[in-house]
């Protein structure tokens, strides 16, 4: 059985036929070909696959593509606009919030929502809101700094 799905990803419309069992993250990576969204686990702990689905951060490994039929999606590839890095991306770069880079796209998308909900987060809030994203390289220290950088920058706009 395959089913038609259509969705808008980073402003582009896509239509495909997929097996119902295909996970959204596989649809994005394998079918659409946007490989910035990563898969790091199979139990929805690591958060490397975090995307913005209809305005909310979700783990794309825990959604079937058919469930996202008709959805508006933003992935890491859609965050920078007109070649201009988003302040969160800038923060990660400025504050060395990444090393191997594998958790980074999911981490950044989680931060995107974090700053929407908590524009002036405390360190404790940042750490609590990122409990769904695992990083094995940074010890989180500079990720916190990157979020603080982005928060300040976005508040100044």
């Amino acid at each position: 059985m395959t089913l038609p799905v259509k969705m808008t990803i980073n402003g582009t419309n896509y239509r495909h036929e997929v097996e119902p069992r295909m996970l959204l993250v596989h649809y994005i990576r394998e079918v659409v070909g946007l490989t910035g969204t990563h898969v790091g686990c199979d139990t929805s702990q690591c958060g490397a696959c975090t995307i913005i689905l209809n305005g909310q951060a979700v783990k794309a490994c825990n959604v079937f593509a058919v469930q996202a039929d008709g959805a508006q999606i933003m992935t890491i590839e859609g965050l920078a606009k007109n070649g201009q890095l988003h302040p969160i991306q800038e923060g990660f770069w400025e504050k060395h919030g990444l090393q191997c880079g594998f958790c980074t796209p999911g981490m950044i998308m989680a931060v995107y929502q974090l700053l929407e909900r908590y524009p002036k987060p405390t360190e404790a809030q940042i750490r609590h809101q990122l409990e769904g994203n695992l990083c094995r390289c940074t010890g989180y220290h500079n990720i916190v700094k990157a979020v603080q950088y982005a928060a300040e920058k976005m508040a100044g706009r």
Binding site: G47, Q56, G132
Partner: peptide, 9 residues
């Protein structure tokens, strides 16, 4: 419950 992403869905 879970984490923010889990709570969203």
């Amino acid at each position: 419950i879970g984490d923010p992403q889990v709570r969203n869905l």
